[in-house]
Design a protein around this nucleic acid. Structure first.
Lengths: 205, 205, 205, 205
DNA sequence: GATGAATGAGGATTCATTCAT
DNA sequence: TATGAATGAATCCTCATTCAT
């Protein structure tokens, strides 16, 4: 008789929003933003088209929600590492390893982000925010490379970023076949100063 | 009112196909495959929709035509370099420099290819061919890295590929601002054995 | 926690129904029947959609409720005047003045009614009732014009009705700018026999 | 073999646009702007939904096209009469008679215009133009009333306009039953100065 | 070879209404 | 009494494709 409590409503909302955004993420990643229809998304989420519009004002807003969540995951990870007490070499190692973990575990997110990176008009509204965030991330990474004593830390950081982006791209093309573990070791070997940096207590040779 | 010779017709054909595929390339690159309509493409090409369908059976076929042309440009370049008489270091340098030139001069092509790389279903029909070509290219690159005496030429080649892909990605994000020249030097420095490789007749130090 | 008395419930009921129908009236008048959504109405009324449907079975019923209330206001006014002890000239003057007052004070109601008058299918179900009421009103007005001694009271009454409707239409188009007071005087001058009819105790010249 | 000539295309365009706008006019008049769907309109016009959008960019534009055409019909009529060599009384008679003819023959147009008059937001974009046109028309009518020697020509003209609008409203409510001919005579009697104005060569008494 | 009118399936979005609590 | 989550039919509009000329 009495209306549902607001916490009940809130729980229902959370549940539905989560299912919708998960389904949308999958379909956007599989078929691209334009290629995934609201009908498909709501069907995969197991809700009606109408309900989707209760929670997201438009297809674009749904995309923005997903993109921002994905980006924030990366931001949080970077922030956590950068603000830790570890030395710069350890920070770079951690960042490398956790980035790859994130790539593997949240493949769909990153596939989506990558595909959007080449269709600028779709994220038009979000671009200022995203560029700001990317600039922030780059600056944080730069401090790590400065700490490592590189002569040209900015360029070295850009190079490292290119490597990581390229790795991600190639992994996404064939997730099952890519020798990610070897590539990770190679990256660490290339960027970490030998004889100085210790891994798990041992000196890195 | 003599009938046009068949060579005249053929020239018109070529001209029309070229204009259509140029227009399509631009629009696919700007708005994505799904986002570019046949009406827009034919308008920008200055032909009627009907004529477009005289030359290309479908929107997909038009895309395939463009993609294959772009890929072949890269293939030709690689083949030319690999089959040349130059040593492996020189080959890698040439490949690096010419890849970057190609990226800068044909930005739209590569932007399109990159965006398609993350929308597997769009290129479904073309995938076997493309994977074949990519495998071929990788094998050719591998021989270069073998020639350079690397211990793990395959991994080193993958790493180099990742770098080049990453560079391209970052350049596409902000073509006006990216320090491509410095990055190119950095790449050459990282991958070319010092004291051995000669550049423009001088020893590389 | 004593249960509310039924009169308390009844008061709440009245309060809610009133708020809903006021909100609905405003929105119907602003955006038309089709243009106003139940969501908007319930929001402006400060109640939930569910509650709205407790009181009104459907959007149509809500409209009917409002329309009938508005019409009854007019009916009551006419009845009061016609059944008064005043002479026909006085009756016409009163009707004219009070109609205009009603128009100005309840602009939204009349705007709504006017817009509905031209969309027959929306009021389909209500039409028999409305036509009946309109016929009744016309008959009452006719007796006034008969009392005034017109040769063709029916036509004269129709003419007067047209004038009043036209005035209302024009006023609604630009409520802020219309010289309603002058027009009212003009109407009285045109329809009231001079030298006979007294206004506020004075003879009308 | 050769493409259709542009005049052939033009003829097809005209034919289709005409059928579409006729169908739209009918349905807008019957069910209101919001109540008439594109599907219904294109079905009644005997064309596909897609074709409708070849000729009209949106439902709104279709409405604007129809409204402007209707308004221009009235404008042309007024202009023709006002600029004629007839005296003011004759002009007023002609305007009255031809307005009524237009009302009866193009009932749908006027019903549509009337219904739109009360839904301001629908014609928002067109309002400036329409108000301009209405102002122009009122000024022209004013010159006629000035010519008739009225003391307050503006008010008298407004009164006349109200009468004509009201007549139209009432006629639209029950086109089959309204005694339009008698009302017309009544209007002429009320507004035309007796003994001065000649009709068909006779003096009006 | 060349045109653009015509089609209709499919896409994003809205909204009256229902219902569990 | 009161809530708002949930539904799905219906709406406006787009677009690849066909076809008569």
């Amino acid at each position: 008789m009495s209306p549902r409590s607001s916490s009940q409503f809130e729980a229902m909302r959370q549940e539905s929003m989560h299912r919708i955004s998960e389904a949308a993420l999958e379909l956007f990643a599989e078929r691209g933003y334009k290629g995934a229809s609201i009908a498909q998304i709501s069907k995969r989420a197991g809700v009606s088209k109408g309900l989707l519009y209760n929670y997201f004002e438009s297809k674009q807003e749904l995309l923005h929600y997903i993109v921002l969540h994905a980006v924030e995951t990366g931001e949080d990870m970077l922030e956590e590492i950068v603000s830790s007490a570890a030395g710069p070499a350890e920070k770079l190692r951690q960042f490398t390893e956790r980035s790859i973990e994130l790539l593997v575990s949240d493949l769909k997110h990153w596939r989506l982000l990558a595909s959007l990176a080449f269709q600028p008009d779709i994220l038009n509204d979000l671009m200022p925010v995203l560029e700001q965030k990317q600039g922030d991330a780059m600056n944080k990474m730069k401090t790590v490379f400065e700490g490592l004593g590189y002569e040209n830390p900015t360029e070295e950081m850009l190079f490292y970023s290119a490597v990581m982006d390229g790795l991600a791209m190639q992994y996404m093309q064939a997730p099952g076949h890519y020798p990610m573990d070897q590539m990770k070791e190679l990256v660490l070997n290339k960027f970490l100063p030998k004889g100085v940096y210790t891994r798990n207590g041992e000196v890195w040779a």
